[in-house]
Design a protein around this nucleic acid. Structure first.
Length: 469
DNA sequence: ACGCCCTAAGTTTAGACAGCATGTC
DNA sequence: CTAAACTTAGGGCGT
């Protein structure tokens, strides 16, 4: 035990440290480095919390959001007074977990670093399970990350003291004392100098009229944190501008002038490279199929990609099968090939989504959690919006994907899904019952009530009423 | 042939902001 | 570089 600069000995194992706190009625917040370990630790420790808490209906709330594999495990934990928390949970589920921990229904919360920087969730006792995290290779977390987690110990106004406990091996003991506990957090480093960020901001400065030449760009960047930490050289700015010129986003005359594509890209708030990939592709192809459009979205640096797992060889076979549909197909030996497979896999996930494959089925097939799917869909929706805006601006037509991605439906459900309270599931039920449009709904009022239930049906009919007037 | 246990080698790994216009199941 | 939990393949051994 480290207290006031001194080290004391205490003979307690991990579970005793947890139980001691819980038995006094206090909450324990544990930071794990991976989702899987967070989940299994929460499950393991639920044996402890179960002794000090009675099950609540919270579990049902969790399952109401989603009833897949992960959600069931979370519900089981929460019944027994423990929970895990990571970005794979749906945002509603996260809210439930956070609230439950705050009011004491959940005594033990095992979280990944989501919680450290985000939500304000203090606890009497915080345990940092490991100071390592994988990030391309295993590395020690930064001092600032450590302080962020440890700093969650102690609820303001409630606890006299908060306790932060680090679990380490013997060999790391002195390092932890010196660097983490007594050390200062490292300086914050600006990432503005990264090429992609620099050109992003150059474009927006030019399009918004804040800068018209290298000099005025430099003036702006000179007032940023980045300039205080490292010099900005003209050649860096010139390179960024040159890039934007090559991509037909700006024109260089006696001063730098935005072009049509640049203005749109800047307004859409996408990486200029994303904008160029989209522009360049729709320019070269007469038309895009649903699949090629999805893949195009996934080719973009703004799109998050799914990871390839060991038994994902089907992706490669499938990519070959649909090669005619793709706007880009690198050779197998190319260094881009692995990256390309990720794009295809991600596109396949989105394809399942807009073809109404069950959410839990998608999660299982692609080994992702419900929260991941939603995030993927949200990003894809944003980029499909960008795609249609850019295409529209240059008189090209692309598949109407935005609404389909948002709701996860086939084209035939678009009319139904435009109504409030009707999403992919209800729309499909209606459609299969022969109700395929707003008119059909009005003509089959009693049938609607049977399919949707009294209350929802009333809401829908009321909305249709107001639409007419 | 089949099942169980154990070990060695192989596999996997955190998070989240933007456009746009309002609400999924 | 500064990891650790989990999965899977394969061998040994008993039934």
């Amino acid at each position: 035990i480290y207290r006031n600069g001194k080290v004391y000995r205490a003979k307690k194992n991990f579970e005793e440290i947890v139980e001691e706190c819980v038995s006094e009625g206090n909450g324990v917040l544990i930071f794990e480095s991976t989702r899987k370990s967070a989940e299994s630790l929460a499950e393991k420790l639920s044996k402890i919390s179960a002794k000090y808490c009675r099950g609540k209906e919270l579990a049902e709330e969790i399952l109401a959001e989603n009833d897949g594999e992960m959600s069931k495990r979370l519900a089981e934990c929460i019944k027994r007074g423990s929970a895990f928390h990571h970005a794979g949970l749906l945002s509603g589920q996260r809210r439930i977990v956070e609230e439950a921990f705050r009011n004491g229904d959940v005594k033990i919360l095992v979280a990944t670093p989501t919680l450290a920087a985000g939500v304000n969730l203090p606890a009497k006792r915080v345990i940092i399970k490991s100071i390592y995290r994988y990030d391309g290779y295993s590395r020690r977390i930064k001092v600032s990350e450590f302080k962020q987690m440890a700093g969650r110990a102690g609820r303001p106004g409630l606890d006299e003291i908060g306790e932060a406990i680090v679990v380490t091996s013997k060999k790391d003991r002195d390092f932890v004392l010196q660097s983490y506990i007594e050390g200062e957090p490292e300086r914050i480093i600006s990432k503005l100098g990264v090429e992609s960020k620099l050109r992003f901001h150059c474009l927006s400065l030019i399009c918004d009229g804040f800068a018209t030449d290298i000099k005025s760009l430099k003036e702006f960047f000179d007032s940023t944190l980045f300039a205080r930490q490292s010099d900005i050289h003209d050649f860096e700015l010139e390179r960024a501008i040159k890039q934007l010129e090559n991509w037909e986003m700006v024109e260089i005359r006696n001063k730098i002038v935005p072009k049509k594509l640049g203005v749109i890209v800047s307004k859409l708030y996408i990486d200029p490279l994303t904008g160029f990939i989209i522009y360049d592709t729709i320019r070269k192809f007469e038309s895009l199929s649903e699949l090629s459009a999805l893949h195009l979205i996934c080719r973009t640096p703004d799109m998050e990609k799914l990871n390839l797992r060991r038994d994902d060889d089907w992706v490669e076979d499938l990519a070959f099968k649909i090669r005619k549909d793709l706007t880009y197909y690198p050779s197998e030996n190319s260094i881009d090939y692995d990256w390309f497979l990720l794009e295809v896999k991600t596109a396949m996930c989105l394809r399942d989504w807009i073809n109404e494959v069950d959410e839990n089925e998608i999660c299982e097939k692609f080994s992702i959690a419900p929260g991941d799917l939603r995030r993927l869909v949200e990003t894809a929706e944003w980029l499909s919006h960008a795609l249609s805006r850019i295409a529209g601006e240059f008189g090209k037509s692309v598949p109407k994907l935005e609404t389909r991605i948002r709701y996860g439906v086939k084209e035939e459900l678009l009319d139904l899904v435009s109504l409030r309270n009707i999403g992919r599931v209800r729309a499909r039920k209606l459609y299969n019952a022969g109700i395929r449009s707003k008119e059909d709904i009005i003509a089959n009022k009693s049938k609607i009530k049977r399919i949707l239930g009294q209350k929802i049906a009333e809401k829908v009919l009321r909305e249709l009423d107001s639409l007419k007037s």
